[in-house]
């Protein structure tokens, strides 16, 4: 009992220590003027219209990130399933994923602005990051079913799609959710970066404009919002993963 209470206390202590550290470094300007004290960042949200602006941007980024998460996950699932059903395509899919992930996103910006527009770019960049993470997670997840389970389906005369639906997808679910826990923050980061290329609104837009105008507290309110959104996605999917692992393992 005492041990478990202590164990629950440690993360709280860790967060408090981090907050105090950030505050102290900012207060005494140990890292220069661009590291503001946390209290000043929070106080800046009290300025008229400021909280509203940050929340509106947060909403835009959250929507773009969520759309990117869905799009990337769907494409990755299709790609990984294709690699499984058509074994010839597997090495090609692997290489394509690796190449897409290696191309610097900044270089893709002009292409994306021309093809999907400034509004669509955050979603697509989020989807690219998500797609890679999910493809890797699913590619191993879809091979996770045990040898004996595969044999059972073979002797029962299972068609490939039946095997995929009744064996390989369920066996891949814990891997899928593991992937989502990583892909959630990736989507937020991708959407934020995508917004730098002229999106109408969002945390990325806010960060760029605050940076150029040296509005440090505003910059950090946007950054803090993005961080919290990422963490929220991570915690949410990790929770679901733990629940699923209990049933599927």
């Amino acid at each position: 009992m005492r041990g478990s209470a202590l164990r629950r206390l440690y993360p709280v202590l860790g967060v408090i220590a981090l907050v105090v550290l950030v505050e102290v470094v900012g207060r005494f300007e140990l890292a220069g003027k661009s590291w503001p004290p946390l209290t000043e960042v929070l106080a800046s949200l009290g300025q008229p219209g400021r909280l509203d602006l940050v929340l509106r941007s947060l909403g835009a980024t959250a929507v773009a990130a969520a759309a990117g998460l869905v799009l990337g996950t769907v494409l990755a699932t299709a790609g990984a399933a294709l690699g499984l059903l058509v074994p010839v395509a597997r090495p090609g899919m692997d290489r394509l994923a690796a190449i897409l992930n290696a191309v610097p996103l900044i270089a893709l910006a002009p292409l994306l602005i021309m093809t999907v527009g400034r509004e669509g770019t955050p979603t697509v960049i989020a989807a690219l990051g998500v797609g890679f993470v999910m493809f890797v997670a699913l590619s191993s997840g879809l091979l996770a079913a045990s040898r004996t389970h595969q044999d059972v389906f073979t002797v029962l005369g299972a068609a490939r799609l039946t095997r995929l639906r009744r064996l390989q997808f369920p066996a891949a679910l814990p891997y899928f959710l593991d992937g989502l826990a990583l892909a959630g923050p990736t989507a937020v980061l991708g959407a934020t970066i995508g917004e730098w290329f002229g999106a109408p609104s969002g945390l990325g837009v806010l960060i760029v404009s605050a940076m150029q105008n040296f509005q440090i507290p505003l910059l950090w309110s946007a950054a803090l919002s993005a961080t919290l959104l990422s963490l929220l996605a991570y915690v949410l999917f990790s929770r679901v993963q733990v629940l699923a692992a209990r049933r599927f393992a």
Binding site: T148, D151, V152, V155, L167, P170, R247, F248, A249
Partner: peptide, 12 residues
């Protein structure tokens, strides 16, 4: 019909 050494039931 085949029964293997390991039961190989689907755990989920």
């Amino acid at each position: 019909g085949v029964a293997f050494q390991e039961h190989a039931l689907l755990p989920w």
